[in-house]
């Protein structure tokens, strides 16, 4: 209840900042940046595995957001909207520099909770995620870390939902092999 109220207040406050930013108020946009930079950078870093590239992607995400702010529907989540932009920017950057992703394997069982059989240190998991192939890593980051559904993650990545599920299956198998624990 209290959490829901806090979320409502945050969204109202955020909506007010969006309105001001739309009218050209850079201070309002800076406050939005301060609020969301961490989540955007975290996503970009996990998708690019390169701190400098992640910084560039974060910067480009917010510049693109400023340009497109007039198209943002205030009733939807700014965080999700920024994530969509960040995914597009990161994919575009990677296409310029990175290797082509091999085709995903067929879908089998998909982990939904992403629970580890035994707890593992954060840096160890982050390293294992960073070592995943791009397609599997993208799907895993959006679905398992940021909580997007298969459909949402697939839409953001511009792939079919089945492909996204296959990538998740692949990510789970690789994580299990690298961490030495069951991922269910």
């Amino acid at each position: 209840m209290a959490d829901a109220q806090a979320e409502d207040t945050r969204v109202d406050w955020e909506g007010a900042l969006v309105q001001r930013a739309r009218s050209g108020d850079r201070r309002a946009f800076e406050r939005l940046y301060r609020e969301h930079a961490g989540r955007v950078y975290g996503l970009c870093l996990r998708m690019t595995r390169d701190a400098q590239l992640a910084e560039d992607c974060t910067q480009e995400t917010f510049i693109n957001a400023w340009r497109a702010l007039g198209k943002f529907e205030t009733r939807s989540s700014l965080s999700t909207w920024l994530h969509r932009i960040a995914v597009n920017v990161s994919l575009a950057r990677r296409r310029k520099t990175g290797p082509v992703e091999p085709s995903p394997e067929e879908e089998e069982g998909i982990a939904s909770e992403w629970t580890l059989e035994t707890p593992v240190e954060v840096h160890e998991i982050e390293s294992a995620i960073a070592a995943l192939p791009e397609g599997a890593r993208d799907a895993l980051v959006l679905h398992a870390l940021y909580g997007y559904s298969h459909g949402e993650a697939a839409h953001m990545l511009g792939i079919a939902e089945g492909t996204c599920k296959a990538q998740l299956h692949r990510a789970r198998a690789l994580l299990r092999a690298r961490l030495g624990v069951e991922v269910s």
Binding site: A37, Y41, A54, F62, W114, I125, E126
Partner: peptide
């Protein structure tokens, strides 16, 4: 401290990572 913390689910990983520099 964060990196040495053990987690039992990927959902427990931090979603937010502050950029090393202020990009604003």
């Amino acid at each position: 401290n964060t990196e040495n913390r053990k987690v039992g689910s990927l959902r427990e990983l931090p979603q937010s990572i502050e950029p090393p520099h202020d990009l604003w």
